[in-house]
């Protein structure tokens, strides 16, 4: 009996959707505690910077008011943080403690589908978190609206990008405490030295190439240019960087996690 000619199982997009749906349902289970903080955080930032620090920075930074400079940066750092947490601690807990993947992998999906589903979900969270910041910043007139509407899409790309690198890190991690190195050694420095809080041009010359090499710098430049209607050819390079990063790092993350999930 050979059925090999008539293989029947859900098509790829339905499989990926079902994985996305699973994450969405678990996330929205505690909608209030999960979806409220992304809106609150930019308000705290506005109060802290607007009422406090902002007074001392009167000169324009990177050609715009400082609060606009920092605010546009926050559009993507929020996507970075949510995707990094989701695909490090989140993925590790699902894989090692809750054993959720063992159950899912008995359903019609491959490990590749599962991991790509994680990435798309992290991207969706990035989109949502960017959108939340956009809502708050545009409500206070810090970001002009029609141009700012593209920002969540950069949030999506940022989310996917940090999902790939976080999943790659997760594939190496033996105990959950190892993630501290990733966050203290990689994510936090990136927040400060990728042109979010001050322009990359202010870095010492030998550090600038490092800033150009890390992913966040490109997201920040892209989103800030979009929000300030300052389109330049270098943005094409940023998009190219993001695309190559996602494909390359994503490929290695899948290959390594596959070894871990399928013996």
């Amino acid at each position: 009996m050979t059925n090999s000619d008539a293989i029947e199982y859900p098509p790829l997009h339905r499989r990926l959707y079902s994985i996305w749906y699973r994450h969405m349902r678990v996330y929205t289970r505690n909608l209030l505690s999960n979806a409220f903080p992304p809106f609150l955080e930019p308000l705290i930032f506005l109060a802290g910077i607007g009422l406090g620090l902002g007074k001392y920075i009167v000169e324009p930074v990177g050609g715009v008011k400082y609060i606009e400079f920092l605010g546009t940066g926050l559009l993507v750092t929020t996507a970075m943080f949510t995707a990094a947490f989701e695909c490090s601690f989140g993925t590790f807990v699902r894989m090692e403690f809750e054993k959720v993947y063992d159950g899912m992998l008995a359903a019609p999906m491959t490990v590749n589908n599962l991991i790509v589903g994680e990435m798309i979900w992290a991207g969706s969270k990035g989109f949502f978190f960017s959108f939340a910041v956009l809502c708050m910043l545009s409500a206070f007139g810090i970001i002009a609206l029609p141009s700012g509407l593209l920002a969540p899409f950069v949030g999506f790309l940022t989310g996917v990008m940090f999902a790939t690198i976080s999943l790659l890190v997760t594939s190496f991690v033996k105990t959950i405490n190892h993630f501290n190195f990733y966050f203290t050694g990689f994510i936090s420095p990136m927040f400060f030295f990728s042109g979010v809080v001050f322009p990359v041009a202010n870095l010492p010359p030998f550090l600038r190439p490092v800033a150009e090499a890390v992913p966040l710098t490109h997201s920040v430049r892209l989103v800030r240019s979009i929000c300030t209607n300052n389109y330049r050819p270098i943005l094409l390079f940023d998009l190219f960087y993001i695309a190559v990063f996602i494909v390359l790092v994503g490929f290695f993350a899948i290959a390594r996690l596959r070894k871990r999930l399928v013996n």
Binding site: S4, Y9, P10, R29, K99, D102, M104, A106, P108, T110
Partner: peptide
Amino acid sequence: GYDPAKNELAIKYFSGVVQQENNLDDE
């Protein structure tokens, strides 16, 4: 009629697996 090395998805689609450990979402 399927080989797991080639048609993993087809086999998974028509089978039901009860795992040894609970791996549903407690939430």
